[in-house]
Amino acid sequence: MRIELRDVSKGRAERALPETALTYETGRATLAAAETEQRPTVLGLLASGRMRADSGEVLLDGKKNAAGIRRRVALVDALGVSDPEAAVTVAGVVAEELMFAGASPNPFAARRWLDGLGLGDLAGTPIGNIEPAARLRILLELAALRKGIEGLVLTSPDRHGGEPQNWWRLAKEFAERGYAVLVIAGRASQSVLEEER
């Protein structure tokens, strides 16, 4: 799967998102920079087929197919769109996502699932209070459970703090597992990761 954003923009005078071009594809982790509180989410919505661009186009394997992108790409932790409420327990977040994935959504199933990740001790903790690496691991793994998902768009992982290398390692791990992974982060995180390459 290959998703290409060709010179997309959003908003009057491109205020919501200036003209942006990028490609992400199966088996690869791609990092895109977007600044301000709103732009990473706008870019994530466009890249996951959930918002129409005001200019430019979004292509799936060379063709316009927003519905196909929506079916195959999960938008992960997008501020105000797909991020879990900070006060909800980790077990609560997991149980809800298990329901969407067609699995048993009860607290026992959620705890077993978390135990499988080695994170069972976090079950009763509000998700807003866990370390960034654990939060992102949980949310990415849950998104990957959904039927038909081939791509993951992770927005603003740097807003939770922690080292950029930690979430970038996660992104690469999911790419190695066969997903098309797009991570949208700030330029400071991008600079840190570029220095290590």
Rank of each mutant, 00 (worst) to 15 (best):
E4G: 13
L5G: 13
R6K: 09
S9Y: 02
K10P: 04
T20D: 02
T23V: 14
Y24G: 15
T26G: 13
R28L: 14
A34Q: 05
R39L: 03
P40I: 01
T41I: 10
G44Y: 01
G44S: 07
L45M: 08
A47Y: 04
S48M: 05
M51S: 13
D54K: 05
G56T: 06
V58L: 14
K64C: 12
K64P: 15
A67R: 04
I69H: 02
V73K: 03
L75S: 08
L75P: 15
L79S: 06
V81E: 10
E85N: 05
T89D: 13
T89F: 12
A91V: 08
A101L: 08
G102M: 04
S104P: 14
P107E: 03
F108Q: 09
A109I: 09
A110K: 02
R111N: 01
R111H: 01
R112F: 01
G116R: 00
L117H: 06
G118A: 08
L119N: 09
D121T: 02
P126R: 00
P126N: 00
I127R: 09
G128C: 06
A133M: 09
A134E: 10
A134Q: 06
L139N: 07
E141D: 12
A143G: 14
A144I: 13
L145V: 05
R146W: 00
G148A: 12
G148K: 08
I149V: 15
E150K: 10
V153R: 06
T155M: 11
R159V: 02
G161W: 01
G162E: 03
G162C: 09
E163N: 09
A171R: 02
A171Q: 03
A171K: 03
E173A: 15
E176D: 10
R177N: 04
I184T: 04
R187Q: 03
Q190I: 11
E194T: 11
E196G: 10
